[in-house]
Design a protein around this nucleic acid. Structure first.
Length: 758
DNA sequence: TTCGGCTGGTTTTTT
DNA sequence: ACCAGCCGAA
């Protein structure tokens, strides 16, 4: 069998492919052909006689795994189907499905997404009588997640002096106890959150050596892509799995580590050298993707970081155009300028829409670009943001299905018990919960035998339990596949009917979304590659879909791609637009205010730059709307950090929009800030509806002529009314109450000042 | 139990 | 601007 594909590789690449025995670390610079190496290395292993079932290849997204599988198949044929490939989460969810009983989970365990976790934490915090304004769910969840990713269980958490004193300092001493309850409740619900999929795998391998041993011998080769973004928990799993055969190969680039917030730890790369004394390290430094200008700019950025491995990324590609800087007055103008640049670029270089990408720091930034692209009739697709599977109606149906599969699933239960409305409110649910605790049985136990627990007033609960029981029969007795179950549940639960009767635009969209979900399930069932067509397996695979996985491939060829920089990892485009380069936005204010890592933001910038093949545009605007308020912006420090040899100003837009609503310190003697926004409160009490206006259509001279009780018409926003209000105990005349319209909740303080006429 | 109005938080990225 | 959660009223 020939291995002529090797001739297309440079020397370090070839070495990496041929190095099949013993630990290997590949430090792969951006655009250095890392995927190629992984593909060929896997193909080569199989050609050398390694069973595909004995290869474990962990990738960052399921989509990346799918693409790599195709490429391997291209080289060695059908056998590629049998390689174990996927994300850490999906692979180990699969293993936990097989082996979870050893640690007390059934094979139909639920997977809690972030919303479920937060909701559970909220209940726990409430039950513990803690103030949810002090114990913020996000903070608590982050602490718990960080602990789990470092393999610190609840008991260890409570015993750890460093951690508990940190919590004491933060005035959040109860986090350890919350964690303990949270872990218990997840376990009782037969549910794992995202972190558990890794944490519990570690527990499984720690406490059940026979299981560990089985997989250690099963996987002759373990490979990890995007190694710089693994956390300790993931690292330990791979380390354990490869301890017997010692054939572990990790591929990564410390300069592209952008997931520290998720527990990723660059230390893993350093530990790696320590853990494997016979480690071979190969550096891939030649960039095949981008022009000299782009590589040069990227290098000048990453050089500012102090924590990094030595690496010299270079390219023999053409010099290429300099990076173009676009300066706009407003976010809307920024979007317009970029849309027209894309339009021109497509004509000039005869490209496809799919050769363009717009990258931003936050999902919220996509909006203005959508509008601008639509105006020019440019097709686009957005990756990420609110995904299909996060929509309410989808989660509702999935919650039904989850509960049918796993009646211990507390979060699913809470979601569906009164949906559609069946007259089971909080009081009833509380009673059920108390009864369950008193009798030391599960909630489902109470619900399904409600007559033996309570005498009367239980008809609606009985109906609910009969409904679920009938669904269970479908799954457990009749062994229907995922589609048949879902289809029946959607109809019989009344979810579909409720949406069908909702004739609003949103209602129609929701109805269609449910249909689309059913279609997706049908596709899943019809796909012959999926052996297990049960609803339980489908649910688990759905909850582990990544951002990149959820988009469909059909029309994607002919559209401009918009996404966050994080989602763009691993992708490349001929022309890249990196937008919103404003201080506090990118680098993010949170990153700078809170903790260490300006360096991680800089790596993010590096990742963004290196996505571009031919051309890179960076842009910022001098003012933008945020939370419905206009805000002035400074250009990002990152712009100045680019080596000036590689960048030039390309377009300059109009002047920034001056807002009439710059926050003012006082309104009628009330301070804008602490203790609460009193000025705002006072005014809100007197008014029912407000309208967001801008200085251009409302000047200070206008309101001064108004009389109390007089109705005023505003050219743009409808009607208003002069009223009396009380300011500082004194009666003042007049503020305008606008009738319903967009932004009725927004009343800017400066606007209020304008409106006070006496 | 449900509905409507009010309040406060958004923090940035994702499995 | 938007959303989720809370509270009082029906």
């Amino acid at each position: 069998m020939s291995i002529d594909y090797l001739s297309g590789l440079n020397e370090p690449q070839r070495n990496a492919v041929l190095h099949t025995d013993g630990p290997l670390m590949i430090i792969a610079g951006a655009g250095s052909g890392k995927t190629r190496v992984l593909t060929y290395r896997t193909a080569y292993l199989i050609e050398q006689g390694i069973d595909p079932f004995a290869i474990l290849l962990l990738t960052f997204t399921n989509k990346a795994a799918g693409e790599m599988r195709q490429r391997i198949e291209h080289v060695i044929g059908k056998q590629a189907k049998n390689i174990w490939m996927g994300t850490f989460h999906s692979i180990f969810a699969k293993i936990l499905r097989f082996e979870g009983e050893r640690i007390g989970y059934t094979s139909s365990f639920s997977i809690y997404d972030t919303d479920d976790s937060k909701s559970l934490l909220r209940s726990i915090i409430k039950e513990m009588n803690l103030d949810d304004k002090v114990y913020k769910v996000n903070v608590v969840l982050n602490r718990i997640s960080a602990a789990k990713n470092k393999l610190i269980g609840p008991q260890q958490y409570l015993n750890n002096d460093v951690i508990t004193s940190e919590d004491q300092m933060a005035k959040l001493p109860e986090i350890g106890n919350i964690y303990k309850t949270y872990a218990l409740r997840c376990f009782q619900a037969n549910a794992m959150d995202f972190d558990d999929l890794l944490f519990q795998t570690n527990i499984l391998f720690r406490d059940h050596l026979d299981v560990l041993n089985k997989y250690q011998h099963k996987f002759k080769h373990v490979m990890v892509d995007e190694f710089q973004d693994t956390n300790v928990s993931q690292y330990l799993i791979t380390k354990k799995l490869s301890a017997v055969n010692r054939n572990i190969c990790v591929v990564g680039d410390d300069a592209q580590s952008i997931y520290a917030f998720r527990g990723a730890d660059i230390q893993n790369i350093l530990n790696f050298e320590r853990d494997y004394s016979d480690l071979t390290t190969i550096k891939l430094e030649e960039n095949y993707r981008s022009t000299k200008a782009i590589v040069g700019a990227a290098n000048s950025i990453i050089a500012k970081n102090r924590h990094q491995l030595k690496k010299n990324v270079f390219t023999s590609n053409e010099k290429g155009e300099e990076i173009e800087l676009i300066r706009a007055g407003t976010d809307a103008e920024e979007a317009r300028l970029i849309a027209s640049t894309i339009f021109e670029g497509k004509q000039r270089d005869s490209l496809n829409w799919s050769d363009f990408a717009i990258l931003y720091r936050t999902n919220a930034q996509s909006r203005s670009f959508e509008e601008a692209l639509r105006k020019l009739n440019i097709k686009y697709k957005i990756i990420g943001g609110l995904s299909f599977y996060q929509r309410k109606e989808i989660k509702d149906l999935l919650a039904y299905l989850r509960f049918v599969v796993n009646q211990q699933d507390e979060e699913a239960f809470k979601r569906i018990i009164n949906l559609p409305k069946r007259g089971i409110g909080d009081t009833t649910i509380a009673k059920i919960t108390v009864t369950a605790v008193e009798n030391n049985v599960s909630i489902w136990e109470v619900v399904s035998n409600i007559q033996s627990f309570a005498g009367r007033g239980t008809q609606s609960i009985e109906n609910f339990s009969d409904l679920i029981k009938s669904f269970k029969i479908l799954v457990e007795v009749e062994q229907k596949d995922a589609y048949e179950v879902a289809n029946h549940v959607a109809k019989a639960s009344g979810l579909l009917r409720e949406l069908y009767e909702d004739k609003t635009v949103e209602g129609l969209a929701r109805y269609q979304n449910i249909q689309e979900l059913l279609n997706a399930i049908k596709q899943y069932v019809d796909n012959e590659e999926n052996e297990d067509k049960s609803i339980a397996t489908f649910l688990q695979s759905v909850s582990l879909l990544t951002n990149a996985d959820t988009q469909e491939d059909d029309d994607s060829k002919e559209s401009v791609t918009m996404m966050t920089i994080h989602s763009a990892k691993g992708l490349e485009f001929k022309h890249v637009f990196l937008v919103g380069l404003e201080e506090d936005l990118f680098p993010s204010q949170m990153m700078l205010a809170s903790q260490s890592d300006l360096e991680e933001e800089r790596r993010l910038f590096y990742v963004a730059i290196t996505r571009a093949e031919k051309r890179l545009y960076v842009s910022y605007s001098e003012s933008r709307y945020q939370y419905g308020r206009l805000k002035t912006c400074e250009p990002s420090r990152f712009i100045d950090e680019i080596d000036p040899n590689f960048i030039r100003i390309s377009k300059i837009g109009g002047k920034k929009e001056i807002s009439g609503f710059k926050p003012i310190p006082k309104v009628g003697g009330f301070s804008q800030k602490s203790p609460t926004n009193q000025g705002q409160h006072l005014i809100q009490k007197q008014t029912t509806n407000y309208q967001h206006v801008s200085s251009s259509n409302f000047t200070p001279s206008n309101p001064l002529d108004l009389k109390e009780g007089q109705k005023v018409e505003h050219q743009k926003f409808g009607f208003g009314l002069i009223q009396k209000i009380e300011v500082n105990g004194a009666e003042r005349k007049a503020i305008i109450t606008f009738e319903k319209g967009v932004g009725e909740k927004t009343l800017l303080l400066s606007f209020a000042k304008l409106m006070i006429v006496s």
